[in-house]
Design a binder for these strands. Structure first.
Length: 314
DNA sequence: AACGGCGACAACCGCAGCAAG
DNA sequence: GCTTGCTGCGGTTGTCGCCGT
């Protein structure tokens, strides 16, 4: 026996909302509020809509002070930086952008920002044909090897421009608040369980050959919430015996194909630019930055914070 | 003018989490 | 501790308009 449907599907209208429906919903909520029960709301106001649909319409479109389109460069940067830090947790990202909805940001990311960043990365890839010859422990096409910060620190990494530090954006003005945010998200950005850059170098022998030592895939997790599962995002062991845990446990690949594509299939940069890919760029950049002593932070989370705070530092 | 491809956006779906009973 | 119902979330799909052929 399954769960009862939230509404009578046969008597519910689907598809785009008419101005009349919008007006009904808006005026009712402005006058009475939602009453804490979205399911009952459409019946109350005589709308042939599912409660969930009403909620979505209100939150994403009718609610006051909603901004649509016209994302600024600063908003782009915030979205990119947070996506790299916490993944596709759109509601949290939206909470940092007043007037923006998670749906809006999600759409914007999927349709524009992702491609924008991917385009940047491709351009850099084209400009670096010689990387393929580099004696890297991971396949030459992998995003790790491709990352300019690893072998060509003089080139800017394919990371988004960090969020500019401004007095107008108090949310990102101190390490503590961002640390709080990241920790609150359930990630291992805590002091107890952080990944410092020594670990990073350990995981990326190609970065620091003196530290080559085969190891099992390290489970670095930001505890990404997903519809299907909670991903334990492993870092890649980049030695020749790379990640036996991954090879021997295909289920570990589930949902992470984008991340392993380069190494497992040797296909190079896939079409998609996803969290894992982004994050591997971040990690490589983190290692690079540590070597150069450019940023204040020495942990991954501090690096993310620095990336957000200090514009122009890669 | 007709058609197809594509991008942008709106809306839907299904699942997880949570609170109340 | 369990069941149930609601909300919130993120992934996915549908629709529409623009553009090139």
């Amino acid at each position: 026996m399954g769960r009862a449907p939230c509404c009578d599907k046969a008597n519910v209208k689907k598809g785009p909302w008419s101005p009349e429906e919008d007006a009904k919903l808006k005026s009712y909520i402005e006058e009475h509020g939602t009453g804490g029960n979205w399911i009952a709301l459409p019946q109350k106001i005589g709308l042939k809509r599912c409660g969930k649909s009403c909620r979505l319409r209100w939150l994403n479109y009718l609610r006051p002070n909603i901004k649509h389109g016209g994302f600024s460069e600063e908003e782009d940067n915030i979205i990119c930086s947070l996506y790299i830090s916490i993944g596709s947790r759109w509601s949290i990202i939206a909470a940092q952008l007043p007037g923006r909805t998670d749906n809006d940001i999600k759409n914007y990311w999927n349709t524009r920002l992702k491609k924008k960043l991917l385009g940047k990365q491709r351009k850099e890839k084209q400009a670096r044909g010689r990387w393929k010859q580099h004696p890297c422990a991971v396949p030459a096409d992998s995003v790790i090897c491709q990352h300019p910060a690893v072998y060509e620190p003089q080139l800017p990494p394919a990371l988004p421009v960090p969020i500019p530090y401004t007095d107008q954006e108090p949310r990102f003005n101190n390490h503590a608040s961002i640390r709080k945010l990241l920790i609150k998200l359930g990630g291992r950005f805590s002091d107890v369980n952080h990944m410092d850059l020594e670990q990073l170098r350990f995981q990326y022998p190609a970065i620091d050959k003196s530290l080559v030592e085969p190891t099992a895939a390290y489970n670095y997790s930001v505890d990404m919430k997903s519809t299907t599962s909670t991903h334990q995002v492993p870092l890649l062991d980049t030695t020749s015996d790379a990640s036996p845990a991954v090879y021997e446990n295909p289920e570990k690949l589930q949902g992470l194909e984008f991340f392993y594509d380069d190494i497992v299939n040797g296909t190079g940069c896939g079409e998609s630019m996803d969290w894992g890919e982004m994050n591997s760029l971040l990690l490589a950049a983190a290692a690079s930055n540590n070597n150069e002593g450019l940023l204040q932070g020495s942990t991954l989370e501090e690096f993310a914070i620095d990336k957000m705070r200090y514009p122009g530092i890669h």
